[in-house]
Write a protein that binds this DNA or RNA. Structure first.
Lengths: 155, 155
DNA sequence: CCTTGACTTCAAGCTTACTTGAACTTGTAG
DNA sequence: CTACAAGTTCAAGTAAGCTTGAAGTCAAGG
């Protein structure tokens, strides 16, 4: 039995639809050889790549960002654990930030919406004096994060 | 000075674009009276409603879900703190779950991708024996959550 | 040989949450 | 009165991440 998997086999093993796998290939996130028939033949190592993609999506990375991460893998050989580890090191930060935001939201939920002061222009938590100067109106502290918001995806 | 705000004023105060406000009105998330001219006149209380919407979006609710939540507010009067508190009570659970998932991801990042075993069908963390029986293939433990995934939005 | 299922490409469609543009009306300052 | 900003509606466009459909090819079983 060869190491090469059909798109259906990869789909079954990964739980990712064949249409999605073709889409990923089109985006350059995964690659496949071709059988003489034209059918895709995936190396078994694509499964880890797909797991990485699914993982990264749950964290909130776009496919674009994921592509950028994957391009940092060593070319010309199947990545080993340390290669993956290097990539995912930056994610810890990202996850921590997102958790921190959620905790801030959790807090605000209790202290501000719960207490009835959430009114965007009166609440001390929404517009705290001790924070950086205003960056325009709006519920800056909870709702706005610097940088683009993490567009998290459906599973 | 009246309690009624133009759409521009609401936009400035809330940080939400006028086009988005019209969209929210179309979806029934907010409402406005009309001036004789046809211009929208928003009650000041709409600001809290908008804050709630923005808040809920960051948590990962869709506008549909947010509409469902808002429909539980008492009709015929401006909601008070306790009304908002009731609504947001369920969110604590949701936030906690999301935080838990991120922590699980964080863990998996260290233990599984980092160590090099992430391969979807071999890793004990991806397919742990001590978890519920398989619900199909794929990286069940981290990547799949029961129910639809939280489609989080841009800020 | 015939059928069935898995595969191919390509184009178009879907969902969410808006934004943008066209064409027009209102409100306000000078 | 004249500008010009701000408002109106409606239709269409955008972005991400796929899915679906059409039309055709390939591989295995009976």
């Amino acid at each position: 039995m060869s190491d090469l998997l059909s798109i259906g086999a990869v789909s079954r093993r990964s739980g990712v639809a064949t249409s999605a796998l073709r889409y990923y290939e089109e985006l350059g996130l995964i690659s496949a050889e071709r059988a003489p028939s034209g059918h895709r033949r995936f190396n078994r190592s694509v499964l880890r790549r797909i797991a990485f993609i699914a993982f990264a999506q749950r964290i909130g990375l776009t496919l674009d960002e994921i592509g950028a991460e994957l391009s940092r893998l060593p070319p010309g050989r199947v990545p080993v654990g340390e290669d993956w580890g290097r990539l995912s090191r930056t994610w810890h930060t990202r996850i921590r930030e997102r958790i921190a935001e959620l905790q801030r939201l959790q807090e605000g939920l209790t202290e501000c919406i719960g207490c009835g002061c959430l009114s965007l222009d009166q609440c001390a938590l929404v517009n705290p004096d001790d924070c950086e100067a205003e960056r325009g109106p709006g519920p800056t502290r909870w709702v706005r994060q610097r940088g683009p918001a993490p567009g998290e995806t459906r599973g």
